[in-house]
């Protein structure tokens, strides 16, 4: 039943964007839960925000930029230490097709 705020198709689309494999049971469960949450947040629709700017940070931040000076990084051994797969030089990943 796709008669709420979000359809099963939308749930599948969002899951694809987020790279989450979901089975049909999970899709339906999430559809219901997201529907309830979206129903709750719909209360924001009534708030007048005309002429307001969004607050991406609540407090103005004036932090200095970084000087263009090299700092020590990781050795290759340490960089690759946690890799699920590596050839000793780089991170081995499932084959990437050029242009895929």
């Amino acid at each position: 039943m796709d008669d709420g705020k979000i359809s099963s198709e939308q749930v599948r689309h969002v899951a694809r964007l987020a790279r989450l494999q979901l089975d049909d049971v999970e899709v339906e469960a999430l559809r219901g839960q997201l529907d309830a949450i979206l129903g709750y947040v719909a209360a924001l629709d009534a708030v007048d925000v005309t002429a307001l700017l969004p607050s991406f940070h609540a407090i103005p931040i004036l932090s200095p930029l970084r000087e263009d000076v090299a700092t020590p990084g990781l050795t290759r051994e340490r960089a690759l230490a946690a890799a699920p797969a590596s050839d000793g030089e780089g991170f081995a990943v499932p084959k990437v097709l050029e242009g895929a």
């Binding site: 090299a70 990781l74 290759r76 960089a79 030089e89 780089g90």
Partner: peptide, 20 residues
Amino acid sequence: TKLFCGCPTDYGAAPNTQVC
């Protein structure tokens, strides 16, 4: 150095030696 960290941007270094 890189845009968001202090790793060097030198071309031609051995793979994964300019990382953090």
